[in-house]
Each structure stands twice: as structure tokens, then as C-alpha cells.
Design a protein around this nucleic acid. Structure first.
Lengths: 223, 223
DNA sequence: ACCTGAACACCGTTCAAGT
DNA sequence: ACCTGAACACCGTTCAAGT
């Protein structure tokens, strides 16, 4: 074999870092944030690591489990530390704003959050922290336990919608078009409210929804 | 060519129904309800219709648009008609229960509801109806418009979780296992509430969540 | 034990050629 | 216009053979 032709043999090419679960997750996350969810395939991760797809299965059971790891890795940046003097409601809103920001900034992460059961340290930290502040606000055990689910779900889906909206070939536009040329006599409410149905681009709708859920949790205490 | 060997030529095989958008959607829905979301691929739909995958693209722009049609077709069975004497809140709960039932009974439909922007007559009927009852309950225009989003999202995700839970090779079980062997000194809240976090199999959690959202909507009126 | 190319059984979509 | 087989550019996962 001719070493001059085969420039990329083991001796001449740069040393390849050994595989590990950690390096696989980080590579997957990088691909996800650069190219969205379709950029993170087992084959593309393997190629980015200069190996074959089979190699990944030494460290990861399957694509779904890897997705869960990547989601949790993405959530490491959610800011949980609050000044002790912050009112419990504002603390919750700040945490959820940070969660929202992380999901919107990394394309594909919002979709993962909506379809992959969270599983890992960072998601656990977020849950623990939210439970603490709900407890501080006087919300019952069951209210807190079931309430964090609604809160995180609401924020995940808002961010998923936001990331979809910023893509082109937008299926949301079809929906908007359908609602805009609706027969007002058959759909009076939709006709009347169509401007409201798709409004709330900025923080307004986000904050409103969280307020609704928190108000609901508080009110349910006394009944 | 030998007609005796080639039994399935055009003359001898049963007449093939002509393609149409309608027939494609119904076939896709049938495959979805029998085999879940992975059973509904363009290729499998084509095979079920005894043709090649390219034929479908005469009637449907792409897989995502077809998904939206199938979702709306699945929603046709949601019961919207309520006795006029029913209290508005109960009417909403009944509609959402029917929506929940439809999503749980057809595997894959819940996932579609969570990831595909609804687009069609049936989804519009559901929205119109919910808006009407929220209005009856005295909820503001904006509250109603933004509120149906939270309500439908909440029910969709509960049904998605339910359908996932009934599968084996369940990634949710990993999460439950993780939460069960958590370090109680680091995660006191999770340790304390872990039984509540995964409870609520039946109607209880479903009804509780809807009540929370409705209470929140009502309370937000006066602030 | 770790690593890998090749193979297996699939995808969505488009092309070119038919009617 | 409608229909279609074949091709294109991909998937996740497993196997068999290497070290």
C-alpha cells in the first residue's frame, strides 16, 4: 500500500479523540443547534466523529435515548439561581423565561422537549427548583406536582410554535390563511376573534399564559 | 407476454378505485389507527392503494400536509353537540373529554396533534365551539382566543403521554426509575412529591387540569 | 471491550416516460 | 392531466469481522 497516496491513514491524520457518551452528546447537540432536528441523525453524528454509525451503539442504546440526553444537555443553560429576595411568582417567571429562551435559540430543542420524556440531571434541577417556588407560594403538594407539568408544557409548545414560525414553507401560514377567509356566518366566533387568535408575538402572551396557570393553581387551593 | 402467468394484469385483477385526495386520507388514517405513526408512510399508503409513491404527489404536496389532513380527518369524531341546558363549563369539559378519547384511541393521532398545525374543517368546528362556551362563561375575547390554545394543548399532551405509557420499551419508565432513586438531600421536593408527580391515571388529573386553566382564565378577568 | 464497513430494511421526493 | 417504476439521497439498526 502506498503511504503517499493514502494521506489519511492512521499515522498521518490528526489524532482522533476516543469516543465517549459525552463526546457523542456534545457532537449531536452541535449538529442540532446548527442544522435543526434533521441535522442530528445517527449517521451525521458518526460522520462528524469520523467513524461509522455502528460505533455509536457502543455508548447509546438508540436514537430516542440519545435525543433524551441531548435535550437534557441543552437544558444545562437554563438559569435557576434567583436572588433570595425575589417574589416566588417572579422567580418562576424568570426561570420559565430562561427555559423559553434556551428552547427558542436552539432549533429543534423545542420539538425534542415536546416529544421526548425529559430524563437527566438538568431537567431534574429545573423541576426541583419550580416545585420549591410553588411550595413557597403556598400551592399544595399535588398542585405543585401536577402544575409544573402544565407550566413546562405551555412554555415548550409556545417555543415550538415560535421556531416553526421563523421557518419558511410554513404550515402555520396555511392555518392563518384558512382562518382569515373563513365564512363568518358559520364561524362567528372565529371571525370575530381571528386577530386575537394569532396575536401575541412578544412577551405578552407568554407572561399572560403563565399568569393564567398560576392563578388557576392558587384558586384551586380554596375549593 | 403470457397472460396466464401474469395473473394480476389490468384485465384480470379487481377494478382499482381511482385515486383521490379523499381516498388517500382515508387510507392513511386507516394505516395510522392500525399501526401507529410509523405505519403511515407515503410508501405504505401507496402500497395499500396498489400504486407507487409518486402517484400520491398528484393530490398531496408533501407528507407534512397529508399529516395535517389526516389529523383533521381523525378529529371528525369529536362530539360537539351539547344539550342547551348544560352549564358552559361542563360543556367544555365534555368536548375536551371527547377530544381526549379520540386522541387516545387512535395511536399516533396525539403525536400529530402536538406537532402538526391543525388545518381543516373539524379542527375549526372544535375551536368555534370552545370559543362560544368560553364566551358564554364571560371570558374576555383575548382570554378565549388564547385560552383554547392552552386547553387543547393540555389535553393533547396528556393523551400523547397516555399513548406512550401503553407502549413497551417505554422511555417514560426510565424517567420514573430516575426519579425514584433520586438523592433526597439534593432533591428534597422531588423526593417528597415523587408519588404525586406520576399519579393521576384516570379522569382525576385530566379534570383537575382543565379546572385549573378555566379558574385561571376566570380569575384573570378581574385584574 | 471497542470499533467499523457493509448490509438490511426502510424513508420522502423527484424524474422521465408512459397513457 | 393523471399515473408510475426507477432513481436519488437519505434514515436507524444489526451483523460479522476486525483490533
Amino acid at each position: 500500500m502506498n503511504n503517499f497516496e493514502n494521506v489519511n491513514n492512521r499515522r498521518t491524520r490528526p489524532a482522533k479523540p476516543p469516543l465517549s457518551l459525552d463526546i457523542i452528546i456534545k457532537t449531536a447537540y452541535k449538529l442540532l443547534s446548527e442544522n435543526g432536528i434533521s441535522g442530528m441523525s445517527m449517521r451525521k453524528i458518526a460522520k462528524a466523529l469520523d467513524t461509522g454509525p455502528a460505533s455509536l451503539y457502543v455508548y447509546v442504546k438508540n436514537y430516542q435515548k440519545l435525543s433524551a440526553y441531548v435535550l437534557d444537555y441543552g437544558l444545562r443553560e437554563v438559569k435557576l439561581v434567583e436572588n433570595d429576595t425575589v417574589y416566588w411568582k417572579d422567580a418562576i417567571i424568570n426561570i420559565l423565561k430562561s427555559y423559553f429562551k434556551v428552547l427558542v435559540e436552539t432549533p429543534g430543542l423545542a420539538e425534542l422537549a415536546l416529544t421526548t420524556p425529559p430524563n437527566g440531571m438538568n431537567s431534574m434541577d429545573i423541576n426541583e427548583c419550580l416545585l420549591k417556588y410553588l411550595q413557597t407560594g403556598g400551592i399544595s403538594k399535588r398542585g405543585a406536582a401536577w402544575g409544573i407539568d402544565i407550566l413546562l408544557l405551555y412554555v415548550s409548545s409556545l417555543s415550538f410554535e415560535r421556531t416553526r414560525r421563523s421557518k419558511k414553507d410554513n404550515d402555520l401560514d396555511d392555518m392563518v390563511a384558512l382562518y382569515n377567509k373563513v365564512d363568518v356566518s358559520k364561524y362567528p366566533m372565529i371571525g370575530m376573534l381571528k386577530s386575537e387568535l394569532f396575536s401575541g408575538e412578544g412577551d405578552e402572551r407568554f407572561s399572560w399564559g403563565i399568569e393564567v396557570i398560576l392563578q388557576g393553581l392558587l384558586t384551586m387551593q380554596n375549593s
